[in-house]
């Protein structure tokens, strides 16, 4: 790709401001989280007061705890089901199961608002008729697992597709029955993808707002819901800046870790980069 000099200049002039555009809002949040003044307009001096008050705010801490609980819980189940599904779709892809592909894509292409209200109506009726599944962390978890399954399945599936398909014949040939194939071949070779799938599922859950909004109950306020409520009521506030900065920090740490890990493995295997997601 030997672009001409003027074209390269044009591309750079276009692109570096885009990166500025992408990071300026995040930088502003972090900056104002250290602002002495409670008004996020001018930076009047450095202070960690908002972090201190954040860690004394029981509501935020409880919301954070629930977000983690929800994320880890749903991602665990979503990873198990998604991994099985991804392997199953790969294993039986020759069987002409077009409907299965549509089903797997359904949670991805369904607009999240429709997704959310569907879950809400469904859970309301289930609760009304059976007494189970009252709106709360459990219903949120069920909804989260539903949108996590296809993403995990896709990550695992694309890892399997990248492998020599004769590996499965070879394992069978070497006396591995279907159980042994799953535990001695499928799980070991897809481990990077399964781990990536779990992290992706967790991120999806931790970041989701719309679907959580419609499936939550009175006692299941998670962090995104808390922030949304606070922003809608009071607008910008420095405490929100602080908690948002912490979340940005977490993402940065995760990204750098991912980059370092995938770099060190790059020579050996193609890393799967499930960066793409929606909701």
């Amino acid at each position: 790709m030997n672009f001409s000099r003027s074209l390269r200049t044009y591309l750079a002039l276009h692109s570096w401001p885009v990166f500025l555009f992408l990071y300026a809002p995040l930088a502003i949040i972090v900056l104002f989280s250290f602002n002495r003044s409670p008004v996020s307009v001018q930076f009047t001096g450095f202070s960690t007061a908002w972090y201190t008050s954040l860690f004394h705010n029981q509501d935020i801490l409880a919301a954070l705890g629930r977000s983690l609980e929800l994320g880890i819980g749903s991602a665990s189940l979503g990873t198990v089901l998604g991994t099985l599904l991804g392997y199953g779709v790969y294993r039986y892809r020759a069987a002409g199961l077009a409907w299965l592909g549509l089903l797997v894509y359904l949670p991805i292409i369904m607009p999240s608002i429709v997704f959310g209200i569907s879950e809400m109506i469904f859970f309301t009726y289930v609760h009304q008729f059976t007494g189970f599944l009252s709106a709360g962390l459990l219903t949120m978890g069920v909804a989260h697992v539903t949108f996590q399954i296809p993403y995990v399945a896709l990550v695992v599936y694309s890892r399997l597709v990248g492998l020599d398909r004769h590996l499965f014949d070879a394992a069978q040939d070497l006396y591995a029955n279907p159980w042994k194939i799953f535990f001695h071949l499928v799980l070991p070779v897809t481990r990077p993808a399964v781990v990536a799938g779990f992290l992706l599922a967790f991120t999806l859950s931790f970041d989701d707002f719309v679907i959580s909004f419609f499936t939550s109950g009175p006692d299941s306020m998670t962090l995104p819901l808390y922030i949304y409520g606070a922003v809608a009521k009071k607008g910008v506030s420095p405490e929100i800046n602080a908690v948002a900065s912490l979340m940005i920090g977490m993402v940065l740490v995760a990204a750098i870790t991912n980059l370092l890990v995938s770099r060190s493995k790059e020579q050996a295997q193609r890393p799967s980069r499930p960066w793409l997601r929606s909701h």
Binding site: L22, P25, I29, F209, L252
Partner: peptide, 21 residues
């Protein structure tokens, strides 16, 4: 990765950042 990174933060936070800006 730099392009994708901001989308790893919550949508509410991303939108909130623009409110502030």
């Amino acid at each position: 990765l730099m392009v994708i990174l901001p989308s790893w933060t919550n949508q509410v936070i991303r939108t909130y950042a623009w409110m502030e800006l």
